[in-house]
Simulated scan of single mutants.
Amino acid sequence: MIVRNKKHILQMLFIWKGSVLKKIFPTLVAIFIFSWIVYFAHYHFPDVIIPLNVGAFALVGISLAIFLGFCNSAAYDRFWEGRKQWGSLVIHSRSLAFQIQNYIEENPLFTKKEKQKSIKLIIAFCYLLNKQLREKVDYESVRQYLSPEVYETMLTKKFKPAYILNELTKWIADQQKDGRIDTIMQSKIDDNIGELSIVLGACERIVHTKIPFVYFVILHRTVYVYCFILPFGLIDLIIWTMPFFVTFVAYTFIALDAVVAEIAEPFGEEENDLALDQMCANIAYSLSEISDMPLPELITPDKNYVVS
């Protein structure tokens, strides 16, 4: 995800990092060249290149803008929902750590290190959720937070974050059986674990229930057809400036089409997706501070951007 400081307006005009321009630049060049071909062909072969009625393009452009707005809203809703769920993950993981640290009694047989095992399960859950959402299979970074037995069993599970939540729930149940917490406190702690489960389910819903593919097909086809026939509608109106104007119009439509496709998958690894790695690192650092564990490396953005 790109995180930027406030910049001068002229700097914003030429920023490349985080812009979709690098994705659509070849298409824009093709449209620019095609527009010049239409321009020269029209004046050399006026009987072959026939101008179209520009009024039709205005109607189609308005309809296309409305449809683009609808798809953009649907895509941003998914991005916003993912952002809210990961914000909730930060809140409830810390609340759970506070409860474990302060409400579970220590004794010579149950030391601070025993409580740190449960804190590590919370951190492992966050990292495994990140990996599940991004379909990653490298779990070495999680090994340090799990016992060898739990780690080996976790590798055999399909839904690894759910397995870790189950282990955390069993750990809390053991504390209640051993008399370190009462049933009221167990219920309060279970509420936070339930919230983590809700976050897991909500993120899985975002991943597995995508925007219907037919929307992207219609949008993509309409945008590209419109941009490639637009030169025929403007050739007699703005003459030699037509290729520049067509390319600018194409940029607005094609760029928004690319943005919709990008933010519709908020858990991806593109520059404008959610910074899941940074959020996981922040949770690990925060929970380690709370439980007096060695502090892990903290991912901090530089003054311009951070990519996660």
Rank of each mutant, 00 (worst) to 15 (best):
S147H: 06
I123G: 01
K131E: 09
L129S: 00
Y103T: 11
C126Q: 00
L146W: 05
K120Y: 06
K136M: 06
I119G: 09
Q132I: 00
F98C: 08
N107S: 07
I100Y: 13
A97E: 02
F110W: 01
L96V: 04
L129H: 03
N130E: 15
K136N: 04
E114D: 11
D138R: 11
L133A: 04
I122C: 07
F125S: 01
Y139N: 03
F125I: 05
E152F: 03
Q116R: 01
N102W: 07
E140V: 09
Y151S: 14
K113T: 08
R134K: 11
Q101C: 11
A97Q: 02
I100S: 10
Q144V: 14
L146M: 09
P108W: 01
P108S: 06
Q132K: 02
F110I: 02
E105K: 15
Q101L: 09
K113R: 15
D138I: 08
K112C: 05
S147L: 08
V142P: 02
K117L: 11
K117P: 00
Q101R: 14
A124M: 14
Q144K: 15
V142N: 00
T111Q: 12
L96G: 03
K131G: 05
R143W: 10
T111G: 06
K120I: 02
K120Q: 06
K113E: 12
L128Q: 08
F125P: 00
R134D: 11
I122W: 04
S141W: 00
K136L: 06
I100L: 15
E152P: 02
T153E: 15
Y145C: 08
I119F: 08
V137Y: 13
K112Y: 06
E140L: 13
Q101A: 11
Q132F: 00
I119N: 13
E152K: 04
A124I: 15
Q132H: 01
L133T: 03
S141I: 00
E135R: 05
L121H: 11
L109A: 12
L109D: 12
I100G: 01
Y127M: 13
Y139C: 01
K117Q: 12
N107L: 02
Q144I: 15
L121M: 14
L128C: 08
T111H: 07
T111C: 12
I122E: 09
E114F: 11
E105I: 12
D138K: 11
K115H: 13
K113C: 10
Y151D: 13
K113D: 13
Y151W: 09
P148I: 08
S147Q: 09
